[in-house]
Design a protein around this nucleic acid. Sequence first.
DNA 1: GTCTATACACAGATAGAC
DNA 2: GTCTATCTGTGTATAGAC
Lengths: 205, 205
Amino acid sequence: MLLAREEAIVAAVNRLLAEKGFDAMTVDAVAAEVGIAKASLYKHFRSKEELAAAAMIRVLDRALAQIDLLGADAGADPVAQLRAMTRWTMQLQLAGEMPSLPAQNSALRTALTSNKVYLDRLMLVSERLGEWIRAGQLSGRLDPGVPPEVVLYTMFARACDPVLNILKASANFSDEQIVEILLSTCFDGLHGRSQANAVRAIRAS
Amino acid sequence: MLLAREEAIVAAVNRLLAEKGFDAMTVDAVAAEVGIAKASLYKHFRSKEELAAAAMIRVLDRALAQIDLLGADAGADPVAQLRAMTRWTMQLQLAGEMPSLPAQNSALRTALTSNKVYLDRLMLVSERLGEWIRAGQLSGRLDPGVPPEVVLYTMFARACDPVLNILKASANFSDEQIVEILLSTCFDGLHGRSQANAVRAIRAS
DNA sequence: GTCTATACACAGATAGAC
DNA sequence: GTCTATCTGTGTATAGAC
C-alpha cells in the first residue's frame, strides 16, 4: 500500500515535471494531483528535490528496461540500437512523460549528485549505451572522431531538445514525422542523409 | 546618459541570464550588479520579463551585426556562413554571454510574444538565415529533405545546447575543441564527417 | 530618477492534533 | 500517515520622500 501510494506520487511528479518543468512545478500541485495533503507528501519525501530525483530514477529505470529489450537481440546493429533508444526518448517527450529539469538550479544539482540511487542508475544507462557506442565506432558506422562521451551526451540531450516541442507546437508535422526528422538531423546532420546513404551505397558496391 | 545607464542595466541582465537563467536571476541581483536601487530599475523597465526581453533584443542585434559581417562577402558559400553563425553562437555561450530563458515559463512567453521589437528582430534574423538555408539546400550541401524551419530551429537550439556546458564542465577539451566537435555533430551528424568528406571527394573527382 | 522602506504573494517546509 | 493551520523565507513590485 505504501509503495503504491509512493508510485502514485512519483507518477504525478513525473507528469508535472514534463508539463511545467521543475521550477514551475509546485509541491501544492503535486499534492492536489495525488489527492492528498501537502504535509503528507513530506512524510514520504523530504524535499521537492527528492521528489524530482525519484522521478528521474523512475525514468532511468524505464530506459534500462528498454535497453534490455533492445539488447535481447544479440545480433542487432549497435547503431540501430542507439537510434532506437534515441527514438524511444523522443517519443517519451512527445507523450508528455519526460521530466525536464533546469541545468542551472544548484540546489537540485546538489541533491542529484549526492543521490546514490540516481547516480547508480545514470551510470548503468551510460555504460550500456557506452558499449553500443564503442561498437559503433569500431565498425565505422559512428564517427570515431567524435569522443564517445560526446555521443552519449548528444543522445541524452535529445531528451530535452527544444526543437521537438517547437515543431509539435507549430502543428506542421505528425509526431512520427518529428521523430524521423530529428533522428535524421541527429545521426546524419544537417548536411543530410543523402550523403550518408551515398557513402553506404558506394562502399557496398 | 539615460541610454548609457540602460545599456549598463541590460548588460548586467544579459550576464546574469547567462550565468543563472531567468528563474534564478533576481531583480535584486541585477540592481546590485548595476549598483543602483531596485526601485530605480523599475523606472527604466516595468517588469522582470521586460528586462529579459531587452537582453534578448540586444543579443539578436549582435547576431544581426555578425550576419551583416558574414554577408558582406558576396561570393561566400551559404553553408559556410551558416556554420560560421553557429560557431559564433557557441562562442557566445562559452564566453558566458548567451542569455538563457526557460522554454516553459508562460509569463515570460506572453511578454516576449507581445513585444513588437523583439518579434521584429527575431524575424529579421530568421529571414537572413532563411536565405542561406534555401541557397544551401538548392546547392545540395544541406539536406533538402530537412524542412528549412527545422534547420533554423536546430541552429537556434545550439545557443542553449546543454552538451556544450557539460563538456566545458568536464574540462577534457579546450573551448576551440568543443566548438569544432559540436559543429561536426550538428552539421555532419553522429555518423560522421568522414562520410560527408567522402561524398565531397567523390563528387569532386 | 534615485533612494529607503514596505506591501503583497507565493511556495517550501513544519507543528501538532487525530 | 493523514489532516488543518501556520511559519518562514524570498522575490516581485510599489509608495513616497528627496
